[in-house]
Structure formats: C-alpha cells, structure tokens
Design a protein around this nucleic acid. Structure first.
Lengths: 230, 230
DNA sequence: ACAAAAGTGTTAATCTTACACCCATGT
DNA sequence: ACATGGGTGTAAGATTAACACTTTTGT
C-alpha cells in the first residue's frame, strides 16, 4: 500500500493514584528536546509491531516501573494538528489506576523524574496534556458512580472511611456517612475482615475487602453498581 | 523528528439510522483491492493536514453524501496488528446517528453501493468491522439511557409511539407505555405540537418535538436525563 | 359495530434522604 | 475524663412498578 501519510502514533497514560486523602497524577519530566524539563504524561511512540495496549504498558514500565491496577482506553487526540510542535502526532490516551500500596516509583533510565502531583497542584504540562488530564478526571468521576473502580485506588484491605473519603474528594461533594455505608454494604461485594487498621486515635476501625469475583458474578446476573447521592 | 514508524491512521464511521421499527447500519461495498465486493464501514485514511474529525466528515460526505445528526468518537482499534491485511492500520472509529428523514443516500463516485442494513441482518464485514459495530451498538444502548440521543434517530416531529418503539427495539426490552410517557413528559423537554401524524388506523396521534434548547438549559442546572426501566 | 392504536390515573412497594447518639480506644 | 474517629437506625418523602379501561378514528 503506497499511501503517503506522515502522521505518527503515540500513546499517553494518565495514571491516577490516591494518597493522603488526595487524588494524584503521575508525571514525568522531559529529558530531551525543545520541551526539556517540562512535565508531561507518561507516553511515547507506538512501534510498528506492537499493539496500542502493549505500547502503553511498555511505556509505563520503561518510564516509571509502576504496576497499574486498571487500564482502559480514554480518547484519541488528533484534532489539533499542531498539538506536538515537532510533527503531526495522533495520541491514543489511556486511563490508569494504581493501588495506593504501589505508589513507590522505581525510577528508570528513561525518566528518573517521575513524580506524583496532587490533581489540584499540577505544574504546566507539555503539549495538550492538561486537556487530556481534564478529560481523564471527568471519566474517573463518572466511572466512580457506576463501576466499582474506587477499589483499584485503595489497598486490598481498606477502611470504610478511606473509601468514603475517596468518593467525597474525587466527586467533590459531601456524602452522608451512614447512607454511604448502607448502600455499599447492601451490594454484598464489600466484606468485613476480622482485622483492624492502624489508627492514630479514636475507636479501632475494621478493614474491608472488595470481593471482585462476587462482583463479576453479580454483573453477569444483571446487577448494576451505582453510587449516586444528591 | 526522524522516528521510523510505518503505521497508517484511518477513521471509520458506524452510522446508525432507524426506520421501519428497526435499527439500521450504513455500509459500503468495497470497490477495489483484495476486499473488493465485501461490505465495510464508511471510512478511509486521514490526510496529513486534516483533523480526525474533518477526516471522518469528509469520508461520510464523499462516500455517502449523508448528513449526520450526531457524531462522537467511539474507540480506537489498534491492538490487532493484522486487522488490515494490507499494512498496519490504526483506526479511530466514530459513532454517528442520522435523522430518519435523512436516510436517502446520495450515492457518490467513491462508493455507489452505500446501503442500509438492519442490525439483525448484517452481511459479512471486512476487517474487524463486525467487532466495531458490536461496540457501537453497546454504546448506543448505554447512551440511550442517560442521554437524549434517541431523538437524533427520529424525525423532528415524531409520535410518542415511535419514540417508545425505538427504546424498546434498541434496548431489546418491553417498557410500560404509561410509565414511559409519564417519565419522558416529566422532564419537560418533549413538547406536544398541535399536529397529528399520518396514521393508517386507530385514533390519530399527536406529533411531539424535542426541545434541545431547554434540555441544554436544564443540563447546565444539573439535570440528569435517565430512562432506565427494569 | 368493530378493529386498531392513542390516551390516561391510582395504588402499593421500594428506594432515598435527612438526621444524632453511643462506642471503643489512646492519652 | 476527654478527645477522636467508628459504628449504627428510623421515619418522612420521593420514585418506581404494576396494572386496565376509555377515546378516537377508519372501515
């Protein structure tokens, strides 16, 4: 096929983590080129013999060494022809979540300067990456409501108050503690363990786990997860 | 930038239309190449100086002459490296709806054989287009529930029974006629006109219109459209 | 008068919201 | 004993689900 086309394909990943009651985004500092020292999303060009999915996983591994818990395609950015000043680049953006026990960055050759930034305190970003982050945040907010992906941001065993806080802070609204717990427990997909969290003060709090198998079973039976409070 | 990459970028459009109580997909018959005479989605390669959005609109215009009522990006297919036997192609798929008064095809030079197929009676499709159609159908089904896009498949003025039928047939379930009408009317975004539809038999039925301006105004005030019946 | 589709209301059941006090621990 | 966060129940209001008869027209 002798079509002349000189558009490059890249992948970018918006990786969200949750720590200190705060949603974080993983960024890396550009080491080369005109955009040297600017912060950008994890990403890079797709190789000829590599699927998009493999490409984004490779970049995640090379640039951060992190293990993501959830990964899905977000959107393909290709309407702004000059989004990359170097040449025409169409970027397939992915949306990733990491478990908060996996937040440690194994900095690697390609980008020693991977770093977490609270979503409220992002630096200036290269390219159109600000826009990509905005879209990813919206996706996260709407997914939280009808899919149990909040658990992918927490450790395997978590406190109910952590889950509650995660919902409140990402959705930016107050949720009644009692109604929230009642609703979540009514689904039967979150189970109490007999362990207690390390706490500073106050009454000790039980640890809970998300039963993914049970959720998948219920899903097949037509169950709909939904956390939607006024 | 001297990266060697030989991946092509294409766009494809899944165009849905609704007629005869039946959801239809627009396909074109391939005229050249190894896949000659196979049916495929509307689509083609993106030009270097053209946005993805412009590319899909150009292809729609060139290949079918149709005017779409709704267009949004669906998903980017690039995981199967051999999805196109000719070379590595990553395709950005778009999801489109056409008003049922616009179903007439202005067949054009590039593909005289554009044709509507009921979703239940699709022929064999080229590439991975079957998979793309499946994903588009799922998207349509879920969007119908929480966005008023059903109206983009109907004429400007429509009968309540048409709307109801559209929901039932696309979602593949029975919906109580009284509850459906009550719910839709309670939103205040569908208005009765003083006209009546052409009917064969039975009591004459009023025509209704969707008030998009009012919907947009309500949206800004936090209104949530939702049609979700057991 | 009948066939065919349009139009319309009520009730029981369920779900959602709002709200405040006691509990278990560390200091 | 007190400060801190954890844990729990109930009642009013809103929403949903289930359900059948009358109306208007053409033949």
């Amino acid at each position: 096929m002798n079509l002349k086309q000189s558009i490059k394909i890249a992948v970018d990943a918006i990786v969200f983590g949750y720590s200190n009651h705060c949603l974080n985004v993983l960024l890396i500092k550009q080491k080369f080129g005109a955009l040297k020292n600017q912060w950008a999303l994890v990403g890079g060009f797709v190789k000829d013999n590599e699927s998009l999915y493999d490409a984004v996983n490779r970049e995640l591994h090379e640039e951060t060494g992190i293990k993501v818990n959830y990964l899905e395609q977000l959107y393909t950015f290709g309407d702004n022809i000059e989004r990359d000043p170097r040449c025409r680049v169409v970027s397939v953006a992915y949306f990733a979540l990491v478990n908060s026990t996996e937040l440690i960055l194994h900095a690697d050759s390609d980008a020693e300067d991977a770093q977490w930034f609270p979503i409220q305190e992002l630096p200036n970003l290269a390219f159109d990456h600000k826009e990509i982050v905005q879209m990813a945040l919206k996706r996260l907010q709407s997914k939280l409501i009808y899919q149990p992906i909040g658990f992918d941001l927490l450790p395997n065993e978590f406190l109910f108050s952590e889950l509650e806080n995660l919902y409140c802070s990402i959705l930016e609204k107050e949720i009644d503690r009692r109604n929230f717990r009642k609703k979540i427990l009514s689904f039967g997909i979150v189970e109490e363990t007999d362990k207690y969290g390390d706490k500073k003060n106050g009454r000790p709090a039980k640890l809970f786990v998300f039963n993914k198998l049970k959720y998948n079973k219920l899903l097949n039976e037509g169950f709909l997860f939904e956390i939607n409070f006024a």
